[in-house]
Design a protein around this nucleic acid. Structure first.
Lengths: 143, 143
DNA sequence: TCATTATTTTAGAATGGTTCTAACCGATAT
DNA sequence: ATATCGGTTAGAACCATTCTAAAATAATGA
């Protein structure tokens, strides 16, 4: 057994534990996607994750990637970020933070939650409850 | 000549002036869409505006509605609001303000610009210039 | 005015991201 | 082990939006 083999198994077990912890069945595909998502904070589209999974030798269907991304979001493992029509990102950083969004290339950059201060958010209209306050700082390439 | 006929012409002239003012050729369709958009602040989708134009007896193609909405946005007559994937709204209120967004029914509600205070917006990354800071207060129907 | 040119509009096809369908497969519990 | 129920899949369907190329219309200038 090689070292890399051992590392892989360890990661898989982590993945399985994470899934159990949030009440999701630890299937082959879900565990694989947790591993492909990795531990670094990043912003992935469904298509990108699908490609990465393929490249990593995990044959997951695009439908499953979509299903899984939504399940992970529900479970609090991911956060959905909508900044442009037809461009949904899933953010592995679920902590308090906001984003820069570059209109030109569609890139997202995190802004730490302590940096931006939002004050004066009004109470939601009758029959509504507050879910989240999103701040998107839209930027453009300067010339 | 009836009163309503006179009112219509007056509105058309207003529309034509507004178009000229922003450097857009005052074509039949564009003037009609300005009229259909009206003077009240509201949030319209391309599809809705298309339907309204049809109903108002102005046969504008959907492609033209899309073209026009984008031109109006460029010209500063409208503001584009993206809050959910595949759900683009155009806001006739181009002044400083933010939005409530109801995740359940997709409704947008304006929040006056003076109400919400955003502090600490960091300077954009190298090579980027700030375009706009959007705040979306996401709400859900409470039970 | 009329011709010329540039822009706009149009129907319908194409695109692209996302969701749906219905058959198949696999994890869990008995 | 086996049944059950949830998960996965390929491919079709969907739907908002964009594209295309041809026809229509506005601006320009003689």
């Amino acid at each position: 057994m090689t070292v890399s083999r051992r590392r892989k198994e360890t990661q898989s077990e982590h993945a399985v534990e994470r899934l159990r912890a949030v009440g999701l069945r630890p299937t082959r595909q879900r565990a694989a996607l947790v591993r492909v998502l990795g531990s670094e904070h990043r912003h992935v589209s469904a298509e990108l994750l699908h490609k990465e999974a393929q490249k990593a030798g995990v044959p997951v269907s695009l439908a499953t990637v979509y299903n899984t991304l939504h399940q992970f979001t529900e479970a609090g493992l991911l956060r959905e970020v909508v900044v442009a029509s037809g461009r949904t990102y899933f953010d592995t950083n679920t902590g308090d933070h906001q984003h820069f969004f570059c209109e030109d290339d569609g890139e997202l950059i995190d802004i730490d939650g302590e940096v931006i201060e939002v004050a004066g958010v009004p109470t939601p209209p009758r029959g509504m409850k507050l879910d989240r306050v999103d701040v998107v700082v839209r930027v453009k390439r300067s010339v």
